[in-house]
Design a protein around this nucleic acid. Structure first.
Length: 443
DNA sequence: TTTTGAGTTGTTCGA
DNA sequence: GTCGAACAACTCAAA
């Protein structure tokens, strides 16, 4: 029987259980729907990454990827009818947005007399399935990760033989793809499964030994950089876990991704609201938030990170924490303001990891009340970018300063020669304000 | 039921 | 320069 495989965040053909299910049943039409509501919200680099990943998937299918532009609620029944398919196969969604969209599409498919089959999820262990001995979902990472490893996962599936179907091109979709690709920065990673696995092999052979030491240094290429591939589904986490020690540090990073997906599964509102209702008092300092977005706060490592985000669509994890701490603890803004900006621009922006990473920084997340978690952007810079290379790469106004002097331009006679902004706040003062607000919560 | 130990990623201060 | 303690009190998981 003919079916449609609706690709979403599973842009690959290997280790793809839903594709296997469709291919086992008969000929398959591979479809991706460019939904303008999602597409237009994304920044140019994020769009370029999706476009490049679609192009890679098209290559992997031998050119048989059909693109459509529009609302999936209208597109899916129309395409299924056009090709004579009775079933739409998907990888099951787990996020609130994805579940709501799938529910609307499912209703439309029902009305059209079409079946829908969900197989697998983008996770090694499906969200909702790791439970404590009492049967409750875990609220804390470490016990979750024990339960997660106990459940375990299957080895990756090979790519199936697929009899692909085609339809005439949708001009609007092809144009959207071409426009997005035209805006790709030179720093965009090579998209697709093969590039992902090649990078993973390099990481495993060359970098994983130094991972614990180098992963915190934003000026060093010491992380796997698998997150953009995982986000778009060019690889499934099973394929990465098969390459490493399941008890090791890298597998633990995968477990963090799965933990946050699990938390979001049980608490969908936590995507955009405080997981723990403390409540904290927030400000809305519009001009300062805009300075933060643009990387013009006068704190070098904050500005370097925010500019890397806009330029590359990626930010080093250490710097994500520093910039997030700055927005929430120095500017006292509500974390979703920052989470929204990150999600719009990060090529690896994933709602579960993004929002819960932000909640961790803001102190509203899963781990217990570390009220004192206020990053000092200057000492963090000196500690993790001690040679200053990261700053010089992203903040040209400071590129003339030597070594670690870039972190404290106010101490250098030539620090402001190139019109670098002065610090927009006094960190020591704002740190005290943040601590006081934490102490007054609920009063 | 009660108790106990633990909880990703920090900073500052004083010895 | 290095190191350990203090920094609120709380929630969770499991014994």
């Amino acid at each position: 029987m003919t079916s449609v495989l609706w690709f979403r965040r599973d842009l690959r053909i290997s280790d793809h259980p839903a594709l296997n299910a469709a291919a086992d049943a008969g000929p398959v039409l591979g479809l991706f729907v460019i939904d303008p509501l999602v597409w237009d919200q994304a920044g140019p680099v994020r769009r370029a990454w999706v476009a490049a990943s679609l192009q890679a998937l098209r290559d992997e299918t031998g050119g048989h990827l059909v693109l459509r532009y529009g609302d999936p609620v209208a597109v899916l029944p129309a395409v299924a009818r056009e090709i004579g398919a009775g079933t739409v196969h998907i990888t099951r969604e787990t996020t609130p947005f994805g579940l709501a969209r799938d529910a609307r599409v499912a209703a439309a498919l029902d009305d059209a007399g079409l079946a829908r089959v969900g197989t697998g999820t983008p996770y090694a262990v499906d969200p909702g399935s790791v439970r404590s001995q009492k049967g409750d979902p875990y609220q804390v990472f470490t016990p979750f990760s024990r339960g997660w490893r106990e459940i375990g996962w299957e080895p990756p599936l090979p790519a199936p033989d697929v009899s692909w179907l085609d339809l005439p091109e949708d001009t609007a979709a092809e144009q959207a793809l071409a426009d997005a690709l035209a805006e790709a920065p030179l720093t965009l990673p090579t998209a697709g499964t093969a590039a992902a696995l090649e990078r993973m092999t390099w990481f495993r052979n060359e970098a994983i030994g130094d991972y614990a030491d180098l992963r915190d240094r934003p000026g060093v290429d010491g992380t796997s950089r698998m997150s953009p591939y995982l986000k778009i589904g060019s690889v499934h986490p099973r394929q990465l876990l098969a390459e490493v020690d399941p008890a090791g540090k890298f597998a633990t990073e995968i477990a963090w991704r799965e933990f946050y997906a699990d938390v979001l599964w049980h608490r969908p509102a936590s995507a955009w609201t405080d997981l723990r209702d403390l409540p904290l008092r927030y400000d809305d300092p519009t001009d300062l938030i805009e300075a933060w977005r643009q990387g013009r706060t006068g704190f070098p490592i904050v500005d370097a990170g925010m500019r890397q985000l806009l330029g590359e669509g990626w930010m080093h994890n250490r710097v994500r924490m520093i910039t997030a701490s700055f927005l929430t603890k120095d500017l006292h803004a509500w974390w979703p303001v920052g989470a929204r900006h990150f999600l719009d621009h990060l090529i690896d922006g994933d709602v579960a990891s993004n929002s819960h990473g932000w909640q961790w920084t803001a102190g509203t997340g899963t781990d217990a009340s570390p009220y004192f978690r206020v990053f000092n952007p200057i000492t963090q810079g000196l500690k993790f970018d001690s040679d200053g290379d990261y700053i010089r790469r992203w903040v040209p106004e400071l590129a003339h300063l030597p070594g670690s002097a870039v972190h404290e331009p106010w101490k250098h006679p030539l620090g402001y020669e190139a019109d670098y902004p002065r610090p927009v706040v006094d960190h020591a003062v704002e740190r005290q304000v943040a601590l006081e607000r934490y102490a007054e919560r609920g009063d």
